[in-house]
Design a binder for these strands. Structure first.
Length: 974
RNA sequence: GCGGAGGUUGCCAAGCCAGGUCAAAGGCGCCAGACUUAGGAUCUGGUCUUGUAGAAGUUCGCGAGUUCAAAUCUCGCCCUCCGCACCA
């Protein structure tokens, strides 16, 4: 696709102003103690491909805030960088190298967005053999996209997370965690592909993408000179064990597991090897060999129980050994029942019918609504006949599991756990077994199949020595909560999710074995995970440009360098000795950090709350003093397309790069701001875009016509028309509302007020023929001056164009935000005008109902003053709206008594309307407004308007005058 | 399962926290009129139901409740979306 093919009508203006902004460096922000600062960040994009309109929403909102704050007089720093650490880029590059057709096609699609010919695309793709080239290409491409959308970014501070200098910064951060004791090492289970030898994430899976890891308790029942080891989700049921189940046809092993002898299935032994256990197979044999033998119970080793055969036991599931609790497990119950009924199959194992019939179910959990043997109840309720009815049995198992977990109590045959609720006791049973070395953990994926892209079955691997950030470390969470409490979250409704996340955070692996990133300084086998290298990096923006300017080398960026610059520790002279950096430069960097920090606002999408944003808060409180904690997090939801999720595979993704040339940056920006409030999902609807574009055209049309006239404010003494007074009032009200909207993050209201509503009132004003030309032009020029600045954060390019046409100094991007002139806001006029509008619609409605008649005159009767007074009296009294109450209020004033019946009618009306309605301040004003608007009403309706006072109507053949109410004139048409 | 957010008039989407000015903003779509050679654009009006006098009736997931008054507050129910950890 040629870039020049599809230029939008706005492209020329947009490019022109982007060039000038860059030339005059107006968004490059340096410390300036004379001005208040505002430091805004939006997370850097991940540069492994083209961005789409969804990303654009967040960056556009960020830019809108930056531009607004700039106009409010802040020294705004809005920087950007690019993210390339982690696995995605690496993964893609590997897939391209491997000749993966899908991956290549996907990259080609993205490249075609930026390159003109297929040859160029192929040539570029050929260079994508290392992640750096890829990341750099897209980082540059995305920067260009951002510039083309008019984002007011200070590009001098750009860096990538792969930079050596940045790695030094991340290293420093992790040294701090280590010093605080927040870093721990331990075992950690992950989905793992034995063939690739790597952990697998969602993107690496062919099947089972939603798989999670399930933790079983492996219980070591005494058997011969070792243990027989079933794995269970219900360890508390060991008190109800009656026998063991073994699949006689499957292969079992005696294996040495961490020095102990375990009997498990052969498959399970292989799995244990991946789970950080030392496993040596001692002997292989069919399950049938141990059937009929005895093992001992955990809670009482004098109890010997038999091992029985069962076909339902799957050697591939867990350890392939199952202990039987027939009273509480439907599978166990039915298998045992089958043997009771037909013990003949046991003969070959030397187990007699008497022996098996002698096995008694052991009830160990009390639960309301069930008999002694809940498993039996559940099976009978479903009328389950055989072990083969797996679905019904699964259902029964779920029922009992839930019922017992939430409502079950351990019976008094459960030793020290007797009498306690199941849901509380579970962990304690495990802890107790652990203390006597009778249990271990065994992991399985919670679903099957789970298949790696290489075609291999995925298993659970346990990484020994995995590094964690321990969010439970003493004091850390409390500090983070404190920071959250003091921080602004906008929209506020997202705070709940932060709080829930804080509650739920425990430990989190923070390093891994593959991907791009910073090596853990004290254990270089590990690479710091990319989410936790992106948490306090806002601080890095404050100095990144100067590191480059001063050509400071990575090895000079030592721990004491960062300690000094970010924490003020040490003396510049000492640090200079160590690093070789001039003390003056060090002081300057420290000054820059102190000027900009803290980060005043971080804007991003709520999907990051449960990870990156929460970590950002935790990491800030861990490293920085309170005055440098984050001040505010603002969020906007993501974007869907025509009511559907966007996804590359569906092909319903609009790349961000196409936006400026297809629609125009200002059109897109306006669309994005006005389509939905930040807290809600935005639905991109192609057919709504032209409507936005047309509004901008109308804006330009009006600006073209009036912006270059001589502005003049018509004050009361100039005796302007009512319409002009109304427009001046409305426009200034809107300026006020827009300011509030932006301050309270009601961005959609801002867009509607500043664009749609402004156009509406201006259209209305321009229709009024009673305004003298000079007055109209002067007033409109004044309005244009306010308007062009009001919309500048949203439509910066168009605004800039008119700002220069209006011969204003400098850039509108740096112009002061319009200030509402409160003296021009006249709520009386606005209310009075509403009466005119209401009168027009009333007459229109009546005209619509009069099908065959065509009246030429409309007699309008304005309510008498006493009715206004009566309404005011009620308003002031502020009593419940019951007719009696209201009557009392009005009648308490003797003046109203003489209107008896009419008062009653008025009160009835108010009760019916369930409240008071707006009207002019008094009868005189209402009369005046209507009289002065008679010509306008006439133009609108095509009938002659005669306004009367209801007190003394000149003409009232149908006695309509007495129905007139404040704000609701009475009308007679003829 | 646990946690979070929601369900508004054809569609999208405000309003709900601080109950009355709410038949409920704004946009899209649709209908009509003006302008125009025509189309597009623009401007104006209409768009829950009924109505030849400005009115009345029925609505904001469902069902109860609180209140003079509920889309808004309380309780119960139904349904939808999102997150749940190595994935940025």
């Amino acid at each position: 696709m040629k870039l020049s093919d599809t230029e939008s009508e706005f492209t020329k203006i947009e490019k022109k102003w982007q060039r000038r902004w860059a030339k005059d460096k107006i968004f490059e922000a340096d410390p300036d103690p004379s001005r208040p600062k505002f430091f805004l960040t939006v997370p850097y994009p991940y540069t492994n491909g083209a961005l789409h309109i969804g990303h654009g929403r967040t960056y556009t909102v960020g830019d809108l805030i930056a531009r607004y704050k700039r106009m409010r007089g802040y020294n705004v720093l809005f920087p950007m960088a690019s993210h390339m650490t982690g696995t995605p880029i690496l993964g893609m590059v590997e897939r391209i190298k491997a000749g993966d057709k899908k991956a290549i096609e996907q990259y080609k699609r993205d490249l075609r967005l930026y390159l003109d010919t297929e040859e160029e695309v192929d040539a570029q793709l050929a260079k994508f053999t290392d992640p750096w080239t890829t990341a750099k290409f897209f980082a540059n491409a995305i920067s260009a996209d951002f510039k083309a959308l008019g984002y007011s970014i200070d590009w001098r501070r750009k860096f990538t997370t792969g930079d050596k200098e940045y790695n030094q910064f991340v290293s420093w951060q992790y040294h701090k965690f280590k010093d605080k004791g927040y870093l721990k090492q331990g075992d950690y289970p992950l989905l793992y592909c034995p063939n690739c030898g790597n952990p697998v994430g969602e993107d690496d899976l062919l099947e089972g993408a939603t798989a999670k890891i399930k933790e079983f308790t492996a219980i070591k029942f005494g058997f011969k000179d070792g243990y027989m080891v079933p794995a269970t989700l219900r360890p508390e049921t060991i008190f109800g064990v009656t026998n063991m189940w073994i699949n006689p046809k499957a292969t079992y092993v005696w294996a040495r597991v961490n020095g102990e002898k375990w009997l498990i299935s052969e498959v399970a032994a292989e799995k244990l090897k991946l789970q950080a256990k030392e496993v040596e197979i001692l002997e292989k044999f069919p399950g049938s060999r141990v059937v009929g033998e005895k093992f001992t119970a955990i809670h009482d080793e004098t109890i010997e129980l038999p091992i029985l055969p069962a076909d339902f036991v799957d050697p591939n599931n867990a350890t392939g050994v199952v202990y039987s609790v027939p009273a509480h497990a439907p599978f166990d119950y039915i298998a045992l029942r089958d043997l009771w009924e037909d013990p003949s199959s046991l003969e070959e194992y030397g187990i007699s019918a008497e022996e098996v019939r002698g096995i008694k179910m052991i009830s160990m959990i009390d639960i309301e609504g069930y008999s002694e043997y809940p498993a039996k109840d559940a099976v009978e309720k479903r009328n389950i006949k055989s072990q083969d009815d797996a679905e019904a049995l699964e259902d029964a198992t779920q029922e009992i599991y839930k019922a017992e977990f939430y409502g079950g109590i351990m019976k008094d045959n459960c030793g020290q756990f007797s009498g306690r609720p199941i849901k509380d006791v579970k962990d304690d049973v495990v802890a107790w077994m652990k203390s006597i070395n009778r249990c271990d953990v065994f992991y399985e994926p919670d679903q099957r199949p789970v298949v790696c892209k290489c075609g291999t079955d995925v298993q659970v691997g346990v990484f020994a020595g995995q590094w964690f950030l321990d969010y439970l470390a003493p004091g850390w969470k409390d500090l983070a909560r404190k920071a959250l409490d003091e921080m602004a979250i906008v929209p506020e409704l997202f705070r709940n999710l932060f709080e829930a996340t804080f509650d739920w955070l425990t430990q989190r692996p923070c390093a891994r074995k593959r991907g791009i990133g910073t090596r853990l300084p004290f254990d270089p086998d590990w690479i710091i995970e990319s989410l936790s290298d992106s948490t306090i990096y806002m601080a890095y923006y404050t100095i990144s440009h100067k590191i480059r300017v001063h050509k400071i080398k990575p090895k000079q960026l030592t721990l004491s360098f960062f300690d000094y610059v970010f924490l003020g520790k040490g003396k510049p002279e000492t640090v200079s000795e160590e690093t070789g950096i001039d003390p003056a430069i060090l002081k300057d960097l420290r000054g820059e950090f102190l000027y900009w920090y803290p980060n005043d606002q971080r804007h991003t999408a709520p999907s990051h709350i449960t990870n990156h944003l929460s970590f950002a808060i935790f990491h800030h409180v861990a490293i920085f003093p309170k005055k440098h904690w984050l001040k505010c997090i603002s969020l906007n939801e993501h974007v869907i397309m025509e009511g559907r999720k966007m996804s590359k595979s569906k092909g319903n993704v609009i790349p961000l790069v196409e936006i400026p040339r297809k629609y125009g940056a200002d059109v897109y920006r306006t669309y994005v701001i006005s389509a939905a409030e930040p807290a809600s999902l935005m639905d991109w609807r192609e057919r709504d875009v032209p409507a936005v574009r047309n509004r901008l055209r109308r804006f330009m049309e009006i600006m073209n016509k009036y912006s270059r006239k001589e502005p003049r404010i018509y004050r009361k003494k100039d005796k302007p028309s009512m319409a002009t007074r109304w427009l001046l009032s409305r426009v200034n009200s809107i300026v006020q509302e827009c300011t509030t909207d932006l301050d309270t993050f009601k961005l959609r209201d801002y867009a509607i007020n500043s664009m749609t509503e402004m156009i509406r009132i201006i259209n209305n004003y321009l229709r009024r023929k009673d305004v003298p030309k000079a007055e109209r032009e002067g007033t409109m020029a004044y309005v244009c001056d306010l308007w062009v600045r009001l919309v500048a954060p949203m439509t910066p390019h168009i605004s800039e164009e008119f700002w220069s046409k209006m011969k204003r100094d400098g850039y509108v991007s740096l112009a002061p935000w319009p200030k509402a002139n409160k003296r021009l806001i006249d709520s009386d006029i606005e209310r009075a005008f509403d009466v005119v509008t209401a009168t027009i619609s009333d007459i229109r409605e009546i005209l619509g109902l009069l099908k065959d008649q065509h009246p030429h005159h409309a007699h309008v009767y304005v309510a008498p003053q006493w009715k206004f007074d009566a309404m005011d009296a009620i308003r002031k009294a502020d009593v419940p709206l019951i007719a009696g109450n209201l009557m009392k209020v009005v009648m308490s004033n003797p003046e109203f008594k003489r209107y008896g019946k009419d008062v009653q009618a008025l009160v009835k009306k108010i009760v019916k309307a369930n409240g008071l309605w707006p009207h002019a301040t008094n009868a005189r004003e209402e009369l005046e407004v209507l009289r002065s608007s008679a010509g306008y009403i006439q133009d609108e309706l095509g009938v002659e308007i005669i306004v009367h006072s209801a007190d003394s109507p000149d003409y009232d053949p149908q006695n309509k005058a007495r129905f007139a109410l404040p704000g609701r004139v009475s009308i007679f048409l003829e």
